[in-house]
């Protein structure tokens, strides 16, 4: 290709109708890199575009907004073809996707299609002239950080999880170019059909663990009814979220939604207190981002003590009685 082509970073937004925080975080990060590298930031977006939304994109640093409509009708392959079209036209050097199920799927398809290096769930991205782009990502159950560099290819792809980067609105308004495109409805793409659907029976109030800064975890060592009752009472007092390890969930002591670990959710509270949690690696994976960990267990050899800030070798019942 010609050498004086425009250097571009493309941010691909999911097929959502509105601009969201996650998109803004990535666009702002792209802009931060672009300011050093001299790239342009273009954003591919298929949602609504009223004045506020358009302003939102320019405020976080988009130079070009490639915008289309009818987001809900686009299937995975169609969306991939759309992205392909833009990549072929603009030849961006870096393409960033949202690390959602949809964004990751599209990124993986594009990676294979263009034989381009893809780093999933980046935690950071750097640029320098000699080395180009560098990506950081956690691997092996979040226990190590790998620095990844793309080789043998001109395009780099990354996906970014929500909340990894911060948003900063730029104080001056950028001149943003709008490029519209049309998405034709194409029925040649077949999809799977749903034969039967059943809603999960109890639609309870969803437990959003991320909203809580304090989390109490019930482990097998605290699964007696008195302990569970005591922990819930204490949680109410301190506005903490109660979660559990797999054995406790499997025994039906608390709901599945509250499971934390490899087969449950990952959490990053300011304070985590493990009541009778032994610390199987599958559970520890889910709490590794907790800022402070207090572990209470009667077994001094419990593996959770290796990860705890405060290791308390005691009977959960004795502690609960005094709290």
């Amino acid at each position: 290709m010609d050498d004086n082509r425009i250097k571009e970073i493309l941010v691909v937004c999911d097929r959502s109708t509105e601009i969201n925080r996650h998109m803004m975080e990535i666009i702002y990060k792209a802009k931060t890199i672009a300011m050093e590298s001299g790239h342009l930031v273009s954003v591919l977006y298929t949602g609504n575009k009223n004045k506020d939304i358009v302003k939102g994109f320019s405020q976080c640093g988009a130079d070009i907004l490639i915008s289309g409509t009818s987001p809900n009708k686009i299937g995975m392959w169609q969306f991939s073809d759309l992205v392909t079209r833009w990549i072929k036209k603009r030849k961006p050097q870096l393409v960033l996707f949202q690390s959602t199920e949809f964004g990751k799927d599209i990124a993986a398809i594009i990676s294979a299609r263009f034989e381009a290096g893809l780093t999933a769930d980046c935690m950071d991205i750097f640029y320098d002239i000699t080395n180009g782009f560098r990506f950081m990502r956690a691997a092996i159950c979040d226990s190590v950080i790998a620095q990844i560099h793309c080789i043998n290819c001109t395009m780099n792809i990354g996906t970014v999880k929500e909340g990894v980067f911060e948003i900063c609105k730029l104080d001056r308004t950028w001149k943003m170019e709008m490029i519209p495109f049309s998405v034709e409805e194409d029925n040649t793409y077949e999809r799977e059909t749903c034969l039967h659907m059943s809603k999960e029976e109890q639609i309870k109030k969803e437990i959003n663990m991320k909203e809580y800064s304090t989390v109490f975890c019930i482990g097998r060592g605290a699964s007696s009814p008195e302990c569970v009752e005591g922990i819930f009472a204490l949680a109410k007092k301190y506005n903490a979220c109660v979660v559990g390890t797999r054995p406790v969930i499997e025994e039906g002591i608390i709901e599945k939604e509250r499971q934390v670990g490899q087969s449950g959710k990952s959490i990053s509270p300011k304070l985590y207190i493990g009541f009778g949690v032994f610390g199987a690696s599958q559970h520890l994976v889910g709490i590794r981002n907790a800022k402070k960990i207090i572990a209470i267990n009667h077994d001094p050899k419990a593996p959770i003590f290796d990860y705890a800030d405060y290791s308390m070798v005691a009977d959960v019942k004795d502690i609960l009685d005094k709290l």
Binding site: A146, C153, D309
Partner: peptide, 20 residues
């Protein structure tokens, strides 16, 4: 197309307090 340049251990040992 990708190459791992470096792997770092993410978790620095915490300053632990053990109470018994």
């Amino acid at each position: 197309k990708t190459k791992v340049i470096e792997i770092k251990n993410k978790y620095n040992k915490k300053e632990k307090r053990k109470l018994e």
